[in-house]
Design a protein around this nucleic acid. Structure first.
Lengths: 207, 207
DNA sequence: TGATAATATGAGTAATCGCTCGTTTTACCA
DNA sequence: TGGTAAAACGAGCGATTACTCATATTATCA
């Protein structure tokens, strides 16, 4: 087991060559985690793959978990930025079919970015790396935005908007995760989107 | 990383005391995996916790993954037996509200059995242990049964029953998993069941 | 250009863990 | 009851891995 060390970087790179070192380490780490999973990765291997000495790696990261944490943070920030852009300007008048379809497409697109890395992150990461709430802020904020939209939606189901938003968000996230990483037999991309959007919309607009 | 060894037991215990040894090892392994996760577990620790020598452990299991695999198999067999019992006799006339509610309750109940062990199994297990299709036979069979019921259901949605069955099964499984292990803010057990059953039923009976 | 700070290096150490194997103990049964 | 097979034992070896630190190299800037 990784001796528990912190997740925060040890020192910030100030010169451009050290910024490049950090960059190349993260790049190599992504490859190593993707190809060997969490347990197959170790700091020596990452350093070698990066073409950097093990000492240099430890200048910036206290250990393997810290590298993974940095990768996850970057991955998730990218993902939520992607979704935010895709949904910009939509749903002002509340949640409708157009919005839900866009939401499904955006979430699906997000899961299609770096899918192998995504798998390692969400299926093999030890709780110590995953727990920090900072990683979840984006998700929480997105759920809040969805709840606000539901508030403006005419013909909403009876349950409170916060609960409906969470229910929808979690369902959608999990379905996309599964579809991208394992597929759902009999459903192609279009079919998946149709079924998902239809199910969620019927749920949201029930009553 | 665990050197890759097989997952199958090395020798079958024949005398009763060796059966007891295997039993006590599995029991200890469950505790160790639960409290320290996959990475926190090792064979030496499991043997010590079991009050058994490391040599004895290796008589029956080729390594840590094999022990985990045995635990998973047992856990999943228990789970599907539970569900099968709960649903016995229901849904003969097709899928209706009564059946869906029973299905949700059964799936939820299954997830409430050994939840911490369940978490380790489904969130931290390396693909080498999880992949073997044998573990998935139960699931596949359950989906088939559900598809057969949908076939007999009047007023079904237009999509093919196999796809609908998979979609429903995966959604339900994931929602229960999330609810039991992390909760969904604002939803208690009753509320969760109501929302889930409602969403799935509306989806199934659409059109 | 020289002083200082930043960065890079990698051999080496300590700790962990997987697993074997020679030996001892226990059970079985003819 | 004695011979054989099953089971249990655990010291310790080999491999892996995390991480340090003394040293060398490079950048910065007054």
């Amino acid at each position: 087991m990784a001796r528990k060390k912190g997740l925060v970087p040890r020192k910030q790179p100030v010169q451009s060559r050290s910024k490049a070192t950090v960059e190349v380490v993260l790049e190599a780490a992504a490859q190593v985690f993707e190809s060997g999973g969490y347990n197959g990765a170790n700091t020596n291997l990452i350093a070698r793959r990066a073409g950097v000495s093990i000492g240099s790696l430890y200048q910036y990261f206290p250990g393997k978990d810290a590298i993974l944490y940095a990768l996850m943070k970057r991955h998730m920030d990218m993902g939520y930025e992607f979704i935010t852009k895709r949904l910009a300007g939509l749903g002002r008048g509340g949640v409708d079919e157009v919005f839900v379809r866009a939401l499904v497409e955006a979430m699906l697109g997000m899961h299609e970015m770096e899918p192998e890395l995504h798998r390692v992150m969400f299926e093999q990461v030890p709780p110590t790396v995953m727990l920090p709430q900072e990683l979840m802020r984006n998700e929480a904020a997105a759920v809040e935005r969805l709840a606000a939209m539901l508030e403006r939606t005419p013909g909403l189901r009876k349950a409170a908007t916060g609960e409906v938003a969470r229910f929808v968000a979690y369902t959608l996230e999990m379905l996309c995760h599964r579809f991208v990483l394992y597929g759902i037999k009999g459903l192609d991309r279009e079919g998946f989107m149709d079924e998902t959007a239809d199910m969620l919309l019927r749920y949201i607009l029930a009553d």
